Amino acid sequence: MDKNTQGIVYMQEGKFEEAASLFNEVIEKNPNDPVGYINFGNLLMHMKDFEHAERFFSRATELDANAATAYYGLGNLYFEQSLYQPAQQNFQKAMELGLEESDVYYMLGLTLQNQEQFKLSLPYLLRAAELAPDDEEILFFYGLSLAQANHLKDAKATFENVIGMNPEHSDAYYNLGIISIFEENIDGALAHFNAALRIQPDHLLAANGKKNIVELLKEKDR
């Protein structure tokens, strides 16, 4: 196992000092290789040291203007700080340079979603879901963008698929409850909110949704 790979293993294990030591050795031995800088940048990201992480990612792009993963790292760095415009630009740059992984499509989709560009986010989240069909988180956020773009029928089917993958996904049940309200299916909405609360008793949105429906049903009975 080379030092870069071992450093990544240390980072995944939370052994940040050991990882930093190895990545530093890699950079000292190969100062013109962007890989060491990218890995060190990712480590600093994990440590929430955004200022220094940006320097390492930027240095990697100076060494290799086609280092797609460096731009992806910058995208993540800006996203973590809610700087969505520069995050979007860097994710797009990574894709232009040939990074074809579910994560970059997913993160670009989330970046657009956070800018309330729901329709624009859809093709990226869909592509992410195609590349990682077993990832329930990606599928859920694709469903969320569908709902936010008023594609309720497709959103409903997507949330149902999420529950098929994970029957304990409280947020999927909550969103199905909201869609049921739009469909004027009050009983269905109540059932979905109850399911969300069974899984997550402190789900405030589901609790509020249930409260509103119970009050509505009381009004009807008067």
Score class of each variant (00 low, 15 high):
residue 136 E to K: 06
residue 128 A to L: 08
residue 162 V to C: 13
residue 157 A to G: 07
residue 124 Y to H: 11
residue 136 E to M: 08
residue 147 A to V: 09
residue 122 L to V: 13
residue 162 V to Y: 01
residue 144 L to W: 06
residue 130 E to H: 05
residue 163 I to S: 01
residue 159 F to M: 04
residue 116 E to Y: 11
residue 126 L to M: 13
residue 127 R to K: 15
residue 139 L to Q: 03
residue 147 A to Q: 14
residue 130 E to Q: 15
residue 123 P to D: 07
residue 149 A to R: 03
residue 132 A to Y: 05
residue 131 L to Q: 01
residue 126 L to C: 08
residue 148 Q to N: 15
residue 130 E to L: 10
residue 151 H to T: 09
residue 131 L to V: 10
residue 152 L to H: 10
residue 128 A to C: 02
residue 163 I to N: 01
residue 134 D to I: 07
residue 124 Y to F: 15
residue 124 Y to D: 03
residue 157 A to S: 15
residue 125 L to C: 05
residue 150 N to M: 11
residue 147 A to F: 11
residue 124 Y to Q: 06
residue 150 N to T: 13
residue 121 S to N: 09
residue 138 I to R: 01
residue 145 S to D: 08
residue 119 K to N: 13
residue 154 D to S: 11
residue 137 E to Y: 09
residue 123 P to A: 10
residue 115 Q to H: 10
residue 149 A to V: 09
residue 116 E to V: 14
residue 142 Y to W: 13
residue 149 A to C: 06
residue 119 K to E: 15
residue 161 N to Y: 09
residue 162 V to G: 00
residue 117 Q to S: 11
residue 157 A to L: 15
residue 127 R to M: 09
residue 125 L to K: 00
residue 135 D to K: 03
residue 148 Q to W: 07
residue 153 K to C: 06
residue 123 P to N: 07
residue 152 L to P: 04
residue 140 F to M: 04
residue 130 E to C: 04
residue 154 D to F: 06
residue 141 F to V: 05
residue 117 Q to N: 11
residue 161 N to D: 13
residue 140 F to A: 04
residue 130 E to S: 09
residue 153 K to M: 13
residue 120 L to F: 12
residue 139 L to Y: 05
residue 162 V to T: 08
residue 156 K to D: 09
residue 122 L to D: 02
residue 139 L to P: 02
residue 149 A to E: 02
residue 148 Q to Y: 12
residue 145 S to E: 04
residue 129 A to V: 10
residue 133 P to H: 00
residue 118 F to L: 06
residue 151 H to L: 12
residue 139 L to E: 01
residue 153 K to H: 11
residue 116 E to I: 10
residue 159 F to P: 00
residue 139 L to T: 12
residue 160 E to I: 14
residue 135 D to R: 00
residue 142 Y to M: 03
residue 117 Q to G: 04
residue 155 A to R: 00
residue 153 K to P: 00
residue 138 I to W: 04
residue 138 I to D: 00
residue 134 D to Y: 08
residue 117 Q to A: 14
residue 156 K to E: 15
residue 162 V to S: 02
residue 132 A to W: 05
residue 149 A to Y: 04
residue 129 A to C: 06
residue 133 P to Q: 04
residue 115 Q to S: 12
residue 130 E to G: 09
residue 125 L to Q: 03
residue 148 Q to E: 14
residue 131 L to S: 05
residue 142 Y to L: 08
residue 143 G to M: 03
residue 152 L to Q: 05
residue 120 L to T: 14
residue 155 A to L: 06
